[in-house]
Write a protein that binds this DNA or RNA. Structure first.
Length: 116
DNA sequence: TCCTTGACGGAGA
DNA sequence: ATCTCCGCCAAGG
């Protein structure tokens, strides 16, 4: 028999404490396959935050530089890289390195957008 | 508190 | 296709 509410939650499959919004975003980003991209809004929705595109941007901006998360696979709804300057060039380079094509700094979302 | 600032997005012009 | 304007939602001043 479960001794506490949290133990019972564990029985149902939930872990000790529900994942924070931030953790849910990390999880979604981590699951974007190589060579594909997702938009901020799409990540937000998949993370259970329908209008949280900006939150996704904020969470990604807070990632440490040595993060293993494929943050570069997240682009804006226009299929463009939102980062400015060197960071933006890095993101485009990482994407090109895994086969994502750019046409005038823009990605063809119809072709590269990830569909879970 | 109020105001400003974004790795945003969609509707109009 | 591009540009503005506005709604959205936290975080920081």
């Amino acid at each position: 028999m479960p001794k506490s509410a949290s133990d019972e939650a564990e029985q149902r499959g939930a872990s000790t404490h529900d994942p924070s919004p931030q953790e849910r975003i990390w999880q979604v980003v981590a699951s974007i396959p190589k060579g594909a991209v997702a938009t901020y809004g799409q990540v937000a929705e998949l993370a259970g935050m329908p209008r949280g595109a900006r939150q996704v941007g904020r969470v990604l901006a807070a990632l440490p530089n040595d993060s293993r998360l494929p943050w570069h696979r997240v682009v804006n709804a226009a299929g463009r890289v939102s980062l400015r300057g060197d960071s933006g060039r890095l993101q485009r380079r990482l994407l090109r390195d895994e086969g994502v094509a750019f046409r005038a700094d823009r990605i063809d979302l119809q072709r590269c957008r990830w569909t879970p």
